[in-house]
C-alpha cells in the first residue's frame, strides 16, 4: 500500500488526472460509471421523465409494452415505465443513505479498534463476530419485521447491519498505518489522538474505504430489493423495484414484463456498481491486481 506521508491521499490535480487515466483504461468500469451517472440523472429528473404518476391508473390491466406504456401496465393499470423510473429514486436514496450510516459506524468503530487496540479492539471485533454469525438476509428480515415497513425503517436496518465489513477493513488499515513514522512524528508534536486519527491516518486509509463503499452501495440496493420483495420494505404505492417484482410474480405467464423490467433495473444497477468498484480498485492501487 502506498502510504505517502501526510501529503494526503490523491490530493493534487496530477494525481487525479493519473487516476482518471488508469480508471478510463477499464472499459467495463467506464460503462458502469456511465450507467450510474445516467441513473442519477433519471432519478433527479424522475417526475419530469415519468409520463404518469406512481399511483396513476389507466384502464389497461397487465397490458404488454406499447407506445403509450413502453414497459406495459401492471395488475391495477399503473404504468410500469413510470414506476421503474420513479423507483430509481427509492433505490438510490436507500442505497446512499444506508451506506452512509454503515460508513460512519464502520469507520468509527474500525478506526477506534485499529487505533487503540487492546480491549477496544477485542470488543469491536467480538461485536462484528456476533453479527456475522447471523446470515445477513435473515438478520435484516428479522430486524425489519420488528422495526416496521417504511423507507426510513429500511434505511436504518440496512445501515445498522451493513457496517461490519467496513469496520474490519478500516481496522486493518489503521493497524498498519499507526505504526508508520509520520504518525510517530505527529505524536511527538503532541497532537491529540482524534487529530491523529482523522487528519493523519484516515486520509491515508481512504482508498479501501472508497472501493468498498462503492461496492457496498450495490450490496445495499440488492438487500433493499430483496427485503422489498419479501414485503418488509416500503409498502405498496411506493414504486420500489423489489416490491414491483413481488407484485408481478403472480402473472408470470401472461405478463412477464411485470417482473422483467424492474428485475433488469436492479441487475444493471448492481452490475454497474460492481464494475465501478473493480475499476476503482485497479485505478487506485494497481499493485492490488
Amino acid at each position: 500500500m502506498s502510504a505517502e506521508p501526510s501529503s494526503g491521499a490523491a490530493g493534487s490535480p496530477s494525481d487525479l488526472r493519473d487516476f482518471w487515466r488508469r480508471f478510463r483504461a477499464n472499459r467495463l468500469a467506464v460503462l458502469g460509471l456511465a450507467f450510474m451517472v445516467a441513473l442519477v440523472v433519471v432519478a433527479v429528473l424522475a417526475p419530469q421523465i415519468a409520463p404518469y404518476g406512481e399511483a396513476e391508473r389507466s384502464s389497461v390491466f397487465r397490458g404488454p409494452p406499447s407506445w403509450d406504456h413502453p414497459f406495459g401496465t401492471d395488475g391495477i393499470g399503473r404504468d410500469v415505465f413510470s414506476r421503474v423510473v420513479l423507483g430509481s429514486r427509492v433505490s438510490l436514496k436507500i442505497g446512499a443513505l444506508a451506506t452512509a450510516i454503515s460508513l460512519i459506524i464502520g469507520v468509527g468503530f474500525g478506526g477506534l479498534a485499529g487505533f487503540f487496540g487492546g480491549w477496544v479492539d477485542g470488543l469491536v471485533m467480538r461485536i462484528t463476530d456476533i453479527f456475522l454469525a447471523i446470515p445477513y438476509i435473515v438478520l435484516a428480515v428479522a430486524i425489519a419485521s420488528v422495526f416496521g415497513r417504511s423507507q426510513n425503517a429500511i434505511i436504518v436496518v440496512l445501515g445498522l447491519t451493513g457496517w461490519l465489513a467496513i469496520a474490519r477493513i478500516v481496522r486493518s488499515s489503521f493497524l498498519s498505518l499507526k505504526e508508520l513514522e509520520y504518525v510517530e512524528a505527529a505524536r511527538a508534536l503532541g497532537f491529540s489522538n482524534s487529530r491523529i486519527m482523522f487528519k493523519h491516518i484516515l486520509p491515508n486509509a481512504l482508498q479501501p474505504i472508497i472501493v468498498y463503499g462503492t461496492i457496498a452501495v450495490g450490496v445495499t440496493i440488492l438487500s433493499e430489493a430483496a427485503l422489498s420483495f419479501l414485503g418488509v420494505g416500503p409498502q405498496d404505492p411506493t414504486p420500489a423495484w423489489g416490491l414491483m417484482i413481488a407484485d408481478g410474480k403472480g402473472s408470470l405467464s401472461n405478463a412477464p414484463h411485470l417482473v422483467l423490467f424492474p428485475g433488469l433495473a436492479i441487475s444493471l444497477t448492481i452490475l454497474s456498481l460492481q464494475m465501478i468498484g473493480d475499476g476503482l480498485r485497479d485505478a487506485l492501487d494497481p499493485k492490488l491486481r
Binding site: L222, L252, P256, V259, G263, I266, Q274
Partner: peptide, 21 residues
C-alpha cells in the same frame, strides 16, 4: 460477473419463465 449481479429472485423468475412457464 453477471450471475453475481442478478438478484436470485430475478434469476429465479427468469428461469421459471424460460423453462417452465
Amino acid at each position: 460477473a453477471v450471475a453475481s449481479a442478478i438478484p436470485v429472485f430475478v434469476l429465479g423468475y427468469i428461469l421459471q419463465y424460460a423453462f417452465a412457464v
